[in-house]
């Protein structure tokens, strides 16, 4: 902020706008209401797109090599790394986990976020405190929380202790040790850290709803549940779709939580594309194979972005009409 304000002092931006015509011409006049914006988006594009797309291109090149990332000797192997990925059962397993992760974390975070938003809009006591409690998990890095969760879900951890003390002792089990439950724990941690975002976005969206709409429903005698389901929920659909996109991207990028809590185990039960790429590229030093997996991740991500966006546009068109 300070940088921008200093810039303002140095540049006389209030001078009359006299040199516009010379570069504008007819095109400019036609779009008088919309001056050209290339110069404005250029820094971000050059910077972000430049750096990241260059990296993607470079990754594409590496994916055709057998290489440890730094050694001078490289072997060109064409598409062999991709063939290897498709025949690697762990790769398919990670896709399955990603899909499960998306469906579970998206639905639970969305429902919870929506309910919290509705409850906190109903003027409870100490609303601010509840908001902070929900958002602090978003603030904390997975690296900070990983040891805490490992402790909580250990065989003699707080979660089993709690189950035993509320009379559900028969459900107590070594959560992180079993292929079947480890993934559930990873998803629970993801939901814990992500619900704050869903909540805050729904909370914001509900604040924008037309009060008349709600009053009309009240006169109608609609009950709370019906009101939530048939009036509020359809009106925050935009937020729900945005959250779907964010959750899908988040599921594909999953890395920290499974890496730090279960190291992808036991027995690949919590392996995700991110952890597989890291393990392949860094400890195993197979940078070429890791790059091929990275490119596959990007292809999937792009395909998904296109599908989600297409669905969104269609829906948007329908409601606008």
């Amino acid at each position: 902020m300070t940088i921008s304000s200093r810039a303002a002092e140095q540049t006389p931006i209030t001078r009359p706008d006299d040199d516009r015509a010379q570069e504008g011409g007819a095109a400019r006049r036609r779009s008088f209401r919309r001056p050209s914006g290339y110069a404005w988006i250029l820094p971000a594009l050059v910077f972000s797109v430049g750096l990241l797309y260059y990296s993607v291109g470079y990754t594409g090149y590496i994916s055709t090599l057998i290489w440890n990332g730094t050694a001078p000797d490289v072997t060109h192997v064409g598409l062999a790394n991709y063939a290897k990925a498709f025949s690697d059962p762990v790769f398919w397993l990670t896709l399955q986990h990603t899909a499960i992760s998306f469906v579970v974390t998206f639905s639970i975070s969305t429902v919870l976020g929506f309910v919290f938003a509705a409850l906190l809009h109903s003027r409870p006591w100490f609303g601010g405190l509840y908001k902070v409690a929900l958002f602090v998990p978003v603030v904390l890095a997975p690296a900070i929380m990983a040891p805490v969760f490992r402790q909580i879900f250990a065989n003699d951890g707080q979660f089993n202790w709690l189950l035993t003390h509320v009379g559900l002792g028969s459900l107590a089990q070594p959560w992180l040790a079993q292929s079947g439950t480890a993934l559930a724990v990873i998803l629970a941690i993801t939901i814990w850290g992500g619900t704050g975002v869903s909540f805050i976005l729904y909370f914001a969206a509900m604040g924008q709803l037309d009060p008349e709409l709600l009053e009309a429903a009240e006169l109608d005698g609609a009950g709370n549940i019906r009101r939530l389901a048939s009036i509020i929920w359809p009106n925050v659909r935009g937020t729900t779709l945005a959250l779907a996109t964010l959750s899908a991207i988040g599921a594909l990028k999953t890395f920290d939580i499974p890496y730090l809590v279960t190291v992808g185990g036991p027995n690949f039960a919590t392996e995700f594309l991110g952890t597989l790429i890291y393990r392949t590229s860094i400890p195993l030093g197979a940078v070429g194979y890791g790059a091929a997996l990275s490119i596959l991740l990007l292809v999937i991500a792009l395909a998904m972005a296109i599908v989600l966006n297409a669905g969104r546009n269609k829906r948007g068109a329908r409601t606008d009409a």
Binding site: R34, L45, S55, I249, G274, L298, A305
Partner: peptide, 28 residues
């Protein structure tokens, strides 16, 4: 707010980068 030909193309070019995880980028 400004006029850019092919605006949505540039926009999507940028937004697609949302999907890039850090770990993919380490080597490049």
């Amino acid at each position: 707010k400004l006029h850019i030909r092919g605006k949505s193309f540039y926009f999507w070019l940028l937004i697609a980068a949302l999907t890039l995880p850090e770990v993919v980028l380490l080597t490049p």
